[in-house]
Design a protein around this nucleic acid. Structure first.
Length: 494
RNA sequence: GGAGGCGUAGCUCAGCUGGUAGAGCAACGGCCUUUUAAGCCGUAGGUCCUGGGUUCGAGUCCCAGCGCCUUCACCA
Protein backbone atom coordinates (compact mmCIF):
# COMPACT_ATOMS: atom_id res chain seq x y z
CA UNK A 1 0.00 0.00 0.00
CA UNK A 2 1.34 3.38 -0.92
CA UNK A 3 2.18 5.98 1.68
CA UNK A 4 -0.44 8.26 0.16
CA UNK A 5 -3.13 5.65 0.74
CA UNK A 6 -1.99 5.08 4.32
CA UNK A 7 -2.26 8.78 5.05
CA UNK A 8 -5.77 8.87 3.66
CA UNK A 9 -6.78 5.81 5.68
CA UNK A 10 -5.61 7.60 8.81
CA UNK A 11 -7.67 10.65 7.91
CA UNK A 12 -10.67 8.41 7.33
CA UNK A 13 -10.29 7.14 10.88
CA UNK A 14 -10.00 10.67 12.23
CA UNK A 15 -13.15 11.70 10.37
CA UNK A 16 -14.97 8.85 12.08
CA UNK A 17 -13.65 9.96 15.46
CA UNK A 18 -15.03 13.43 14.77
CA UNK A 19 -18.47 11.86 14.53
CA UNK A 20 -18.88 11.94 10.74
CA UNK A 21 -19.46 8.90 8.55
CA UNK A 22 -16.57 8.87 6.06
CA UNK A 23 -18.86 7.16 3.55
CA UNK A 24 -21.90 9.33 4.10
CA UNK A 25 -25.41 8.42 3.09
CA UNK A 26 -28.49 9.88 1.50
CA UNK A 27 -28.01 13.52 0.56
CA UNK A 28 -31.30 14.97 -0.52
CA UNK A 29 -31.93 17.89 -2.81
CA UNK A 30 -28.56 18.30 -4.48
CA UNK A 31 -28.82 20.42 -7.60
CA UNK A 32 -26.58 20.00 -10.64
CA UNK A 33 -23.83 22.60 -10.68
CA UNK A 34 -24.80 23.70 -14.18
CA UNK A 35 -28.36 24.26 -13.05
CA UNK A 36 -27.26 26.44 -10.15
CA UNK A 37 -25.14 28.46 -12.55
CA UNK A 38 -28.06 28.79 -14.91
CA UNK A 39 -30.50 30.19 -12.38
CA UNK A 40 -28.16 32.46 -10.42
CA UNK A 41 -28.95 36.14 -10.79
CA UNK A 42 -26.17 38.47 -9.87
CA UNK A 43 -26.82 40.95 -7.09
CA UNK A 44 -29.96 39.31 -5.78
CA UNK A 45 -29.72 38.54 -2.07
CA UNK A 46 -30.67 35.34 -0.32
CA UNK A 47 -30.14 32.81 -3.11
CA UNK A 48 -29.10 29.39 -1.86
CA UNK A 49 -27.23 26.48 -3.37
CA UNK A 50 -26.96 22.80 -2.49
CA UNK A 51 -24.55 20.64 -4.45
CA UNK A 52 -22.78 17.32 -4.19
CA UNK A 53 -19.69 16.17 -6.00
CA UNK A 54 -16.02 15.39 -6.03
CA UNK A 55 -13.34 17.79 -4.80
CA UNK A 56 -11.15 18.31 -7.86
CA UNK A 57 -9.28 21.45 -6.79
CA UNK A 58 -8.52 22.65 -3.29
CA UNK A 59 -7.00 25.98 -2.30
CA UNK A 60 -6.35 26.26 1.42
CA UNK A 61 -5.65 29.83 2.45
CA UNK A 62 -5.65 29.17 6.17
CA UNK A 63 -8.90 30.30 7.67
CA UNK A 64 -10.54 30.27 4.26
CA UNK A 65 -10.63 27.34 1.88
CA UNK A 66 -11.84 27.29 -1.70
CA UNK A 67 -12.77 24.01 -3.32
CA UNK A 68 -13.87 23.21 -6.82
CA UNK A 69 -16.55 20.56 -6.76
CA UNK A 70 -17.26 18.55 -9.89
CA UNK A 71 -20.50 16.72 -10.64
CA UNK A 72 -21.65 15.26 -13.94
CA UNK A 73 -22.95 18.63 -15.09
CA UNK A 74 -19.90 20.78 -14.39
CA UNK A 75 -18.17 22.48 -11.50
CA UNK A 76 -19.13 24.69 -8.57
CA UNK A 77 -16.84 26.58 -6.25
CA UNK A 78 -17.30 26.15 -2.53
CA UNK A 79 -16.06 28.84 -0.16
CA UNK A 80 -15.44 27.52 3.35
CA UNK A 81 -14.83 30.12 6.01
CA UNK A 82 -13.58 29.14 9.45
CA UNK A 83 -15.87 31.78 10.93
CA UNK A 84 -18.99 30.25 9.34
CA UNK A 85 -17.95 26.64 9.90
CA UNK A 86 -16.18 26.74 13.27
CA UNK A 87 -17.98 23.58 14.43
CA UNK A 88 -16.87 21.58 11.38
CA UNK A 89 -13.42 23.07 10.83
CA UNK A 90 -11.50 20.04 12.12
CA UNK A 91 -13.43 17.80 9.73
CA UNK A 92 -12.92 20.17 6.83
CA UNK A 93 -9.18 20.14 7.42
CA UNK A 94 -9.23 16.36 6.89
CA UNK A 95 -10.65 16.63 3.38
CA UNK A 96 -8.50 15.62 0.43
CA UNK A 97 -8.64 16.02 -3.30
CA UNK A 98 -10.89 13.31 -4.66
CA UNK A 99 -13.24 13.12 -1.69
CA UNK A 100 -16.98 13.36 -2.32
CA UNK A 101 -18.85 15.97 -0.29
CA UNK A 102 -22.19 17.72 -0.20
CA UNK A 103 -22.51 21.38 0.69
CA UNK A 104 -25.22 23.93 1.29
CA UNK A 105 -25.08 27.66 1.77
CA UNK A 106 -25.77 31.03 0.26
CA UNK A 107 -24.73 31.87 -3.26
CA UNK A 108 -22.47 34.75 -4.06
CA UNK A 109 -19.59 35.76 -6.21
CA UNK A 110 -16.00 36.39 -5.18
CA UNK A 111 -14.19 39.53 -6.15
CA UNK A 112 -12.92 37.76 -9.25
CA UNK A 113 -16.52 37.04 -10.22
CA UNK A 114 -16.60 33.29 -9.55
CA UNK A 115 -19.96 31.91 -8.47
CA UNK A 116 -19.49 30.39 -5.02
CA UNK A 117 -21.53 28.55 -2.45
CA UNK A 118 -20.55 30.12 0.87
CA UNK A 119 -20.97 26.91 2.77
CA UNK A 120 -22.92 26.80 6.03
CA UNK A 121 -22.93 23.05 6.36
CA UNK A 122 -20.71 20.47 4.78
CA UNK A 123 -21.56 16.76 4.56
CA UNK A 124 -18.95 14.07 4.15
CA UNK A 125 -20.15 11.70 1.41
CA UNK A 126 -17.20 9.48 0.58
CA UNK A 127 -13.51 9.36 1.45
CA UNK A 128 -11.16 8.70 -1.43
CA UNK A 129 -8.30 6.46 -0.38
CA UNK A 130 -6.44 6.93 -3.63
CA UNK A 131 -5.26 10.32 -4.87
CA UNK A 132 -6.71 11.69 -8.10
CA UNK A 133 -4.51 12.25 -11.16
CA UNK A 134 -2.61 15.46 -11.66
CA UNK A 135 -4.97 18.40 -11.71
CA UNK A 136 -3.76 20.15 -14.81
CA UNK A 137 -2.93 17.36 -17.26
CA UNK A 138 -5.55 14.96 -15.96
CA UNK A 139 -5.14 11.28 -16.70
CA UNK A 140 -3.18 11.12 -19.94
CA UNK A 141 -1.86 7.56 -20.11
CA UNK A 142 -4.13 5.95 -22.68
CA UNK A 143 -3.93 2.52 -21.14
CA UNK A 144 -4.82 3.83 -17.68
CA UNK A 145 -7.66 5.93 -19.10
CA UNK A 146 -9.35 2.84 -20.56
CA UNK A 147 -8.59 0.58 -17.61
CA UNK A 148 -9.76 3.15 -15.09
CA UNK A 149 -12.55 4.82 -16.97
CA UNK A 150 -14.10 5.55 -13.58
CA UNK A 151 -11.27 8.03 -13.06
CA UNK A 152 -11.06 9.21 -16.66
CA UNK A 153 -14.67 10.36 -16.57
CA UNK A 154 -14.06 13.06 -13.98
CA UNK A 155 -10.36 13.65 -14.51
CA UNK A 156 -11.02 14.52 -18.17
CA UNK A 157 -14.40 16.28 -18.36
CA UNK A 158 -14.54 16.04 -22.16
CA UNK A 159 -14.80 12.27 -21.71
CA UNK A 160 -17.91 12.67 -19.55
CA UNK A 161 -19.33 15.07 -22.10
CA UNK A 162 -18.73 12.69 -25.00
CA UNK A 163 -20.58 9.85 -23.29
CA UNK A 164 -23.41 12.18 -22.33
CA UNK A 165 -23.68 13.14 -25.99
CA UNK A 166 -23.63 9.48 -26.99
CA UNK A 167 -26.54 8.82 -24.64
CA UNK A 168 -28.50 11.78 -25.99
CA UNK A 169 -27.88 10.69 -29.57
CA UNK A 170 -29.04 7.11 -29.02
CA UNK A 171 -32.12 8.50 -27.28
CA UNK A 172 -32.75 10.64 -30.37
CA UNK A 173 -32.41 7.62 -32.64
CA UNK A 174 -35.03 5.79 -30.61
CA UNK A 175 -37.30 8.83 -30.63
CA UNK A 176 -36.89 9.30 -34.37
CA UNK A 177 -37.78 5.68 -35.12
CA UNK A 178 -40.60 5.42 -32.62
CA UNK A 179 -42.14 8.58 -34.07
CA UNK A 180 -42.23 6.79 -37.42
CA UNK A 181 -43.98 3.76 -36.02
CA UNK A 182 -41.01 1.46 -35.48
CA UNK A 183 -41.29 -1.02 -32.63
CA UNK A 184 -38.17 -1.59 -30.56
CA UNK A 185 -37.48 -5.26 -29.87
CA UNK A 186 -34.78 -7.45 -28.40
CA UNK A 187 -33.74 -10.67 -30.07
CA UNK A 188 -31.34 -13.38 -28.91
CA UNK A 189 -27.72 -12.52 -28.23
CA UNK A 190 -26.98 -16.22 -27.71
CA UNK A 191 -27.75 -18.20 -30.83
CA UNK A 192 -27.32 -21.78 -31.93
CA UNK A 193 -26.49 -20.59 -35.45
CA UNK A 194 -24.50 -17.37 -35.81
CA UNK A 195 -26.01 -15.93 -38.94
CA UNK A 196 -26.79 -12.66 -40.63
CA UNK A 197 -23.21 -11.61 -41.31
CA UNK A 198 -19.83 -13.00 -42.25
CA UNK A 199 -17.70 -13.04 -39.16
CA UNK A 200 -16.15 -15.46 -36.77
CA UNK A 201 -18.29 -15.80 -33.66
CA UNK A 202 -17.48 -16.20 -30.00
CA UNK A 203 -18.52 -19.55 -28.58
CA UNK A 204 -20.02 -20.09 -25.17
CA UNK A 205 -21.71 -22.99 -23.44
CA UNK A 206 -24.93 -23.55 -21.54
CA UNK A 207 -24.26 -26.01 -18.74
CA UNK A 208 -27.73 -27.38 -17.96
CA UNK A 209 -28.63 -27.89 -21.58
CA UNK A 210 -25.07 -28.97 -22.38
CA UNK A 211 -25.35 -26.79 -25.45
CA UNK A 212 -22.74 -24.76 -27.31
CA UNK A 213 -24.01 -21.33 -28.23
CA UNK A 214 -22.65 -18.47 -30.29
CA UNK A 215 -22.75 -14.85 -29.30
CA UNK A 216 -24.58 -13.21 -32.13
CA UNK A 217 -22.71 -11.56 -34.98
CA UNK A 218 -25.94 -9.88 -36.17
CA UNK A 219 -29.63 -9.82 -35.23
CA UNK A 220 -30.73 -9.85 -38.86
CA UNK A 221 -32.26 -13.31 -39.17
CA UNK A 222 -34.34 -12.88 -36.02
CA UNK A 223 -35.60 -9.43 -36.98
CA UNK A 224 -36.71 -10.78 -40.33
CA UNK A 225 -38.59 -13.57 -38.54
CA UNK A 226 -40.50 -10.74 -36.89
CA UNK A 227 -41.44 -9.40 -40.32
CA UNK A 228 -42.88 -12.83 -41.02
CA UNK A 229 -44.68 -12.56 -37.69
CA UNK A 230 -46.40 -9.39 -38.79
CA UNK A 231 -44.31 -6.67 -37.19
CA UNK A 232 -44.08 -4.31 -40.11
CA UNK A 233 -41.54 -1.87 -38.68
CA UNK A 234 -39.05 -3.14 -36.12
CA UNK A 235 -35.68 -2.06 -34.85
CA UNK A 236 -33.13 -3.17 -32.32
CA UNK A 237 -30.19 -1.32 -30.81
CA UNK A 238 -27.90 -3.79 -29.18
CA UNK A 239 -24.50 -5.43 -29.10
CA UNK A 240 -22.98 -7.65 -31.76
CA UNK A 241 -19.89 -9.75 -31.10
CA UNK A 242 -17.29 -10.59 -33.68
CA UNK A 243 -14.22 -12.64 -32.92
CA UNK A 244 -11.81 -10.66 -35.02
CA UNK A 245 -8.94 -8.24 -34.79
CA UNK A 246 -9.06 -4.97 -32.91
CA UNK A 247 -8.38 -1.59 -34.44
CA UNK A 248 -9.32 2.04 -34.10
CA UNK A 249 -12.52 1.09 -35.94
CA UNK A 250 -13.22 -2.36 -34.49
CA UNK A 251 -14.06 -3.51 -30.99
CA UNK A 252 -15.03 -7.18 -30.53
CA UNK A 253 -18.35 -6.12 -29.03
CA UNK A 254 -19.99 -3.16 -30.69
CA UNK A 255 -23.40 -1.60 -30.88
CA UNK A 256 -25.53 -1.96 -33.98
CA UNK A 257 -28.88 -0.49 -34.86
CA UNK A 258 -30.78 -2.68 -37.28
CA UNK A 259 -34.22 -1.92 -38.60
CA UNK A 260 -36.63 -3.56 -41.04
CA UNK A 261 -39.57 -1.99 -42.80
CA UNK A 262 -42.12 -4.09 -44.65
CA UNK A 263 -43.14 -3.10 -48.18
CA UNK A 264 -40.10 -0.85 -48.55
CA UNK A 265 -36.85 -1.24 -50.48
CA UNK A 266 -33.29 0.02 -50.33
CA UNK A 267 -34.18 3.38 -51.79
CA UNK A 268 -36.48 3.96 -48.83
CA UNK A 269 -33.62 2.91 -46.56
CA UNK A 270 -31.37 5.49 -48.19
CA UNK A 271 -33.87 8.24 -47.54
CA UNK A 272 -34.43 7.05 -43.99
CA UNK A 273 -30.69 6.87 -43.27
CA UNK A 274 -30.13 10.35 -44.60
CA UNK A 275 -32.93 11.88 -42.60
CA UNK A 276 -32.05 9.97 -39.42
CA UNK A 277 -28.39 10.97 -39.41
CA UNK A 278 -29.25 14.43 -40.69
CA UNK A 279 -31.67 14.81 -37.81
CA UNK A 280 -28.99 13.76 -35.30
CA UNK A 281 -26.55 16.31 -36.69
CA UNK A 282 -29.12 19.09 -36.58
CA UNK A 283 -30.06 18.20 -33.02
CA UNK A 284 -26.68 17.47 -31.50
CA UNK A 285 -23.93 19.08 -33.57
CA UNK A 286 -22.83 22.62 -34.31
CA UNK A 287 -23.39 22.94 -38.03
CA UNK A 288 -23.27 20.33 -40.74
CA UNK A 289 -19.54 20.46 -41.44
CA UNK A 290 -17.90 18.34 -38.77
CA UNK A 291 -14.22 17.91 -37.98
CA UNK A 292 -13.02 14.32 -37.86
CA UNK A 293 -9.33 13.96 -37.03
CA UNK A 294 -7.46 15.65 -39.84
CA UNK A 295 -10.56 15.65 -42.02
CA UNK A 296 -13.57 17.85 -42.37
CA UNK A 297 -16.78 16.12 -43.35
CA UNK A 298 -19.62 18.03 -44.94
CA UNK A 299 -22.90 16.36 -44.00
CA UNK A 300 -25.06 18.84 -45.89
CA UNK A 301 -27.88 17.01 -47.61
CA UNK A 302 -28.45 15.52 -50.10
CA UNK A 303 -25.55 13.08 -49.99
CA UNK A 304 -23.86 11.63 -53.01
CA UNK A 305 -25.35 8.40 -54.34
CA UNK A 306 -22.97 6.52 -56.61
CA UNK A 307 -23.10 3.11 -58.16
CA UNK A 308 -20.48 0.61 -57.06
CA UNK A 309 -19.40 -0.02 -60.64
CA UNK A 310 -19.07 3.69 -61.37
CA UNK A 311 -16.86 4.26 -58.31
CA UNK A 312 -14.69 1.33 -59.33
CA UNK A 313 -14.25 2.92 -62.75
CA UNK A 314 -13.59 6.31 -61.19
CA UNK A 315 -10.92 5.29 -58.68
CA UNK A 316 -9.54 1.95 -59.88
CA UNK A 317 -9.78 2.87 -63.52
CA UNK A 318 -11.25 -0.43 -64.59
CA UNK A 319 -14.53 -1.65 -65.92
CA UNK A 320 -16.28 -4.01 -63.51
CA UNK A 321 -17.29 -6.19 -66.46
CA UNK A 322 -13.71 -6.49 -67.72
CA UNK A 323 -12.50 -9.18 -65.36
CA UNK A 324 -8.96 -9.51 -66.77
CA UNK A 325 -8.50 -5.77 -66.23
CA UNK A 326 -9.80 -6.02 -62.67
CA UNK A 327 -7.44 -8.92 -61.95
CA UNK A 328 -4.56 -7.00 -63.46
CA UNK A 329 -5.38 -4.09 -61.19
CA UNK A 330 -5.46 -6.47 -58.22
CA UNK A 331 -1.95 -7.66 -59.02
CA UNK A 332 -0.78 -4.05 -59.31
CA UNK A 333 -2.14 -3.54 -55.80
CA UNK A 334 -0.16 -6.57 -54.58
CA UNK A 335 -3.35 -8.52 -53.93
CA UNK A 336 -3.06 -12.27 -54.39
CA UNK A 337 -6.01 -12.84 -56.71
CA UNK A 338 -5.23 -16.40 -57.77
CA UNK A 339 -7.99 -18.75 -56.70
CA UNK A 340 -10.25 -15.90 -55.65
CA UNK A 341 -13.82 -15.65 -56.88
CA UNK A 342 -14.37 -12.90 -59.42
CA UNK A 343 -16.68 -11.03 -57.09
CA UNK A 344 -14.18 -11.24 -54.26
CA UNK A 345 -11.40 -9.87 -56.45
CA UNK A 346 -13.62 -7.01 -57.52
CA UNK A 347 -14.41 -6.21 -53.92
CA UNK A 348 -10.76 -6.36 -52.87
CA UNK A 349 -9.90 -3.88 -55.58
CA UNK A 350 -12.84 -1.72 -54.55
CA UNK A 351 -11.75 -1.64 -50.93
CA UNK A 352 -8.15 -0.91 -51.84
CA UNK A 353 -8.87 1.89 -54.27
CA UNK A 354 -12.22 3.48 -53.52
CA UNK A 355 -12.93 3.46 -49.80
CA UNK A 356 -10.19 5.84 -48.70
CA UNK A 357 -11.72 8.51 -50.98
CA UNK A 358 -15.16 8.31 -49.45
CA UNK A 359 -14.77 11.13 -46.93
CA UNK A 360 -18.01 13.06 -47.57
CA UNK A 361 -21.06 10.92 -46.85
CA UNK A 362 -21.58 8.68 -49.87
CA UNK A 363 -24.10 5.99 -50.60
CA UNK A 364 -22.44 3.22 -52.58
CA UNK A 365 -25.17 1.26 -54.31
CA UNK A 366 -25.76 -1.83 -56.39
CA UNK A 367 -23.19 -4.32 -55.17
CA UNK A 368 -22.25 -7.44 -57.15
CA UNK A 369 -24.96 -9.95 -56.30
CA UNK A 370 -22.46 -12.66 -55.40
CA UNK A 371 -21.33 -10.61 -52.40
CA UNK A 372 -24.83 -10.33 -50.96
CA UNK A 373 -26.45 -13.65 -50.02
CA UNK A 374 -29.28 -12.05 -48.05
CA UNK A 375 -30.13 -9.38 -50.59
CA UNK A 376 -32.70 -9.32 -53.35
CA UNK A 377 -31.22 -9.05 -56.80
CA UNK A 378 -32.18 -6.16 -59.01
CA UNK A 379 -35.22 -6.97 -61.08
CA UNK A 380 -33.72 -5.03 -63.95
CA UNK A 381 -30.32 -6.74 -63.87
CA UNK A 382 -29.76 -9.78 -61.64
CA UNK A 383 -25.99 -9.29 -61.62
CA UNK A 384 -26.50 -6.50 -59.07
CA UNK A 385 -27.95 -6.68 -55.62
CA UNK A 386 -30.23 -3.96 -54.31
CA UNK A 387 -27.83 -3.02 -51.59
CA UNK A 388 -26.01 0.09 -50.45
CA UNK A 389 -23.34 0.91 -47.93
CA UNK A 390 -22.96 4.39 -46.52
CA UNK A 391 -19.43 5.68 -46.10
CA UNK A 392 -18.26 8.81 -44.32
CA UNK A 393 -14.81 9.73 -43.11
CA UNK A 394 -13.53 6.83 -45.25
CA UNK A 395 -15.33 4.50 -42.87
CA UNK A 396 -18.23 2.13 -43.43
CA UNK A 397 -21.14 3.49 -41.44
CA UNK A 398 -24.24 1.70 -42.62
CA UNK A 399 -25.29 -1.27 -44.72
CA UNK A 400 -28.73 -1.78 -46.14
CA UNK A 401 -30.64 -3.70 -48.75
CA UNK A 402 -33.87 -4.83 -50.20
CA UNK A 403 -34.37 -8.04 -48.28
CA UNK A 404 -34.41 -11.35 -50.09
CA UNK A 405 -37.76 -12.98 -49.31
CA UNK A 406 -37.73 -15.98 -51.65
CA UNK A 407 -37.05 -19.03 -49.43
CA UNK A 408 -35.68 -21.16 -52.25
CA UNK A 409 -33.22 -18.53 -53.48
CA UNK A 410 -32.22 -17.87 -49.87
CA UNK A 411 -31.57 -21.55 -49.22
CA UNK A 412 -29.55 -21.86 -52.42
CA UNK A 413 -27.48 -18.82 -51.43
CA UNK A 414 -26.79 -20.34 -48.01
CA UNK A 415 -25.67 -23.61 -49.59
CA UNK A 416 -23.41 -21.82 -52.05
CA UNK A 417 -21.80 -19.86 -49.22
CA UNK A 418 -21.25 -22.99 -47.15
CA UNK A 419 -19.42 -24.76 -49.92
CA UNK A 420 -15.64 -24.87 -49.65
CA UNK A 421 -15.34 -22.83 -46.52
CA UNK A 422 -13.91 -24.07 -43.25
CA UNK A 423 -16.35 -24.25 -40.38
CA UNK A 424 -15.12 -21.15 -38.55
CA UNK A 425 -15.00 -19.08 -41.72
CA UNK A 426 -18.42 -19.93 -43.01
CA UNK A 427 -19.86 -16.74 -44.43
CA UNK A 428 -23.45 -17.52 -43.69
CA UNK A 429 -24.35 -20.71 -41.91
CA UNK A 430 -27.41 -22.64 -42.85
CA UNK A 431 -30.31 -21.60 -40.68
CA UNK A 432 -33.09 -24.06 -41.45
CA UNK A 433 -35.63 -22.39 -39.21
CA UNK A 434 -35.07 -19.09 -40.96
CA UNK A 435 -35.86 -20.78 -44.28
CA UNK A 436 -38.99 -22.24 -42.68
CA UNK A 437 -40.01 -18.73 -41.62
CA UNK A 438 -39.52 -17.42 -45.15
CA UNK A 439 -41.72 -20.24 -46.45
CA UNK A 440 -44.61 -18.80 -44.46
CA UNK A 441 -44.13 -15.62 -46.46
CA UNK A 442 -42.05 -12.60 -45.52
CA UNK A 443 -43.23 -9.27 -46.87
CA UNK A 444 -40.90 -7.52 -49.26
CA UNK A 445 -38.89 -5.21 -47.04
CA UNK A 446 -36.01 -2.84 -46.71
CA UNK A 447 -33.44 -3.47 -43.98
CA UNK A 448 -30.79 -1.17 -42.56
CA UNK A 449 -27.90 -1.53 -40.15
CA UNK A 450 -26.00 1.42 -38.70
CA UNK A 451 -22.86 0.99 -36.63
CA UNK A 452 -23.70 3.15 -33.66
CA UNK A 453 -20.15 3.37 -32.28
CA UNK A 454 -18.81 4.58 -35.61
CA UNK A 455 -21.65 7.04 -35.98
CA UNK A 456 -20.85 8.47 -32.55
CA UNK A 457 -17.18 8.64 -33.53
CA UNK A 458 -18.03 10.79 -36.54
CA UNK A 459 -20.45 13.03 -34.66
CA UNK A 460 -18.16 13.59 -31.66
CA UNK A 461 -14.84 13.69 -33.51
CA UNK A 462 -13.36 10.59 -31.90
CA UNK A 463 -10.88 8.87 -34.22
CA UNK A 464 -10.68 5.72 -32.09
CA UNK A 465 -13.67 3.52 -31.34
CA UNK A 466 -12.25 3.06 -27.83
CA UNK A 467 -13.09 6.66 -27.11
CA UNK A 468 -16.81 6.08 -27.66
CA UNK A 469 -17.00 2.76 -25.78
CA UNK A 470 -16.91 3.15 -22.00
CA UNK A 471 -15.01 -0.06 -21.38
CA UNK A 472 -13.25 -1.18 -24.57
CA UNK A 473 -11.76 -4.66 -24.56
CA UNK A 474 -8.18 -4.73 -23.26
CA UNK A 475 -5.90 -7.57 -22.40
CA UNK A 476 -5.78 -8.12 -18.67
CA UNK A 477 -2.94 -6.10 -17.26
CA UNK A 478 -0.10 -7.91 -15.55
CA UNK A 479 1.11 -7.26 -12.03
CA UNK A 480 1.26 -3.59 -12.88
CA UNK A 481 -2.50 -3.47 -13.34
CA UNK A 482 -3.09 -1.56 -10.19
CA UNK A 483 -1.77 -1.18 -6.70
CA UNK A 484 -5.31 -1.90 -5.55
CA UNK A 485 -5.58 -5.42 -6.88
CA UNK A 486 -7.09 -7.24 -3.92
CA UNK A 487 -6.99 -10.98 -4.53
CA UNK A 488 -8.48 -11.65 -1.08
CA UNK A 489 -11.55 -9.65 -2.09
CA UNK A 490 -12.63 -12.28 -4.60
CA UNK A 491 -15.73 -13.48 -2.80
CA UNK A 492 -18.25 -16.12 -3.81
CA UNK A 493 -19.93 -15.48 -7.09
CA UNK A 494 -23.38 -13.99 -6.93
C1' G B 1 0.15 -12.56 -36.45
C1' G B 2 4.04 -8.62 -39.03
C1' A B 3 6.34 -3.67 -38.60
C1' G B 4 7.33 0.90 -35.87
C1' G B 5 6.90 3.64 -31.19
C1' C B 6 6.22 3.88 -25.93
C1' G B 7 6.65 1.91 -20.48
C1' U B 8 11.08 6.35 -15.02
C1' A B 9 7.68 8.94 -7.96
C1' G B 10 0.34 8.64 -6.82
C1' C B 11 -0.21 11.77 -11.72
C1' U B 12 2.25 14.62 -16.00
C1' C B 13 7.00 14.32 -17.84
C1' A B 14 12.85 15.24 -18.23
C1' G B 15 17.14 12.09 -17.90
C1' C B 16 22.92 13.63 -23.67
C1' U B 17 28.46 9.55 -26.07
C1' G B 18 26.90 4.04 -20.00
C1' G B 19 29.31 6.82 -14.23
C1' U B 20 25.33 7.06 -7.10
C1' A B 21 17.65 9.21 -10.06
C1' G B 22 15.33 14.80 -11.64
C1' A B 23 11.24 18.66 -12.14
C1' G B 24 6.08 20.23 -11.73
C1' C B 25 1.55 18.77 -9.53
C1' A B 26 -0.19 15.67 -5.47
C1' A B 27 1.58 14.41 -0.21
C1' C B 28 3.69 15.84 4.84
C1' G B 29 5.18 20.25 8.41
C1' G B 30 4.81 25.75 8.78
C1' C B 31 2.47 30.90 7.23
C1' C B 32 -1.85 33.06 5.04
C1' U B 33 -10.01 35.03 5.11
C1' U B 34 -11.59 36.27 -1.85
C1' U B 35 -8.35 31.94 -4.16
C1' U B 36 -9.19 29.59 -8.93
C1' A B 37 -3.29 25.23 -12.25
C1' A B 38 -3.48 30.17 -5.40
C1' G B 39 1.39 31.78 -3.22
C1' C B 40 5.87 31.46 0.03
C1' C B 41 9.46 28.40 3.33
C1' G B 42 10.84 23.45 4.55
C1' U B 43 10.51 17.81 4.32
C1' A B 44 9.67 13.16 2.40
C1' G B 45 8.64 10.06 -1.72
C1' G B 46 11.62 5.16 -6.85
C1' U B 47 10.73 -2.99 -8.44
C1' C B 48 13.48 3.15 -13.87
C1' C B 49 7.41 -2.76 -16.90
C1' U B 50 9.53 -8.10 -15.99
C1' G B 51 13.61 -11.67 -16.61
C1' G B 52 18.32 -12.64 -18.53
C1' G B 53 23.03 -10.79 -20.75
C1' U B 54 27.39 -7.35 -21.97
C1' U B 55 30.35 -4.12 -18.72
C1' C B 56 34.56 -2.26 -13.32
C1' G B 57 29.67 0.07 -13.67
C1' A B 58 23.03 -0.28 -17.12
C1' G B 59 17.16 4.00 -16.58
C1' U B 60 20.62 4.23 -20.89
C1' C B 61 23.57 -1.08 -24.82
C1' C B 62 21.97 -6.47 -26.35
C1' C B 63 18.30 -10.74 -26.02
C1' A B 64 13.56 -12.65 -24.45
C1' G B 65 8.80 -11.69 -22.39
C1' C B 66 4.40 -8.54 -20.77
C1' G B 67 1.16 -4.26 -21.64
C1' C B 68 -0.43 0.04 -24.45
C1' C B 69 -0.46 3.21 -29.02
C1' U B 70 -0.02 3.56 -34.44
C1' U B 71 -0.07 0.81 -38.87
C1' C B 72 -0.64 -3.58 -41.90
C1' A B 73 -3.02 -8.33 -42.06
C1' C B 74 -7.87 -10.48 -40.56
C1' C B 75 -12.81 -8.17 -40.95
C1' A B 76 -20.37 -8.03 -45.45
Amino acid sequence: MSKLEQQRREKRGQIGQLGADPYGGRFEGAEPAASVRGRYTEGQEGQRGRCAGRIVLLRDIGKLIFMTLRDSSGTMQLGLSKKLLAGQWELIKKLDLGDLVGAEGTLGTTKTGELTIWVEHLTMLSKALLPPPEKFHGLADVDLRYRRRYVDLWANPEVMERFQRRSAMTASIRGFLQARGFLEVETPMMQTVAGGAAARPFITHHNTLDLDLYLRIAPELFLKRLLVGGMEKVFEINRNFRNEGLSTRHNPEFTMMELYQAYADYHDMMDLTESLIGHLIETHCAGSVLPFGEMEIDFSRPWRRARYADLLAEYAGCDIEDLPAVRKKARELNLDETGMDDAVVINEVFEATVESHLVPPTFVLDYPAALCPLTKQSAADPRWAERFELFAGAMELANAYTELNDPDVQEANFRRQLRGLSADETMAKMDGDFITALKYGMPPAGGLGIGIDRLIMLLTNATSIRDVILFPLLKPAGSGAGPEALPEAAGPST
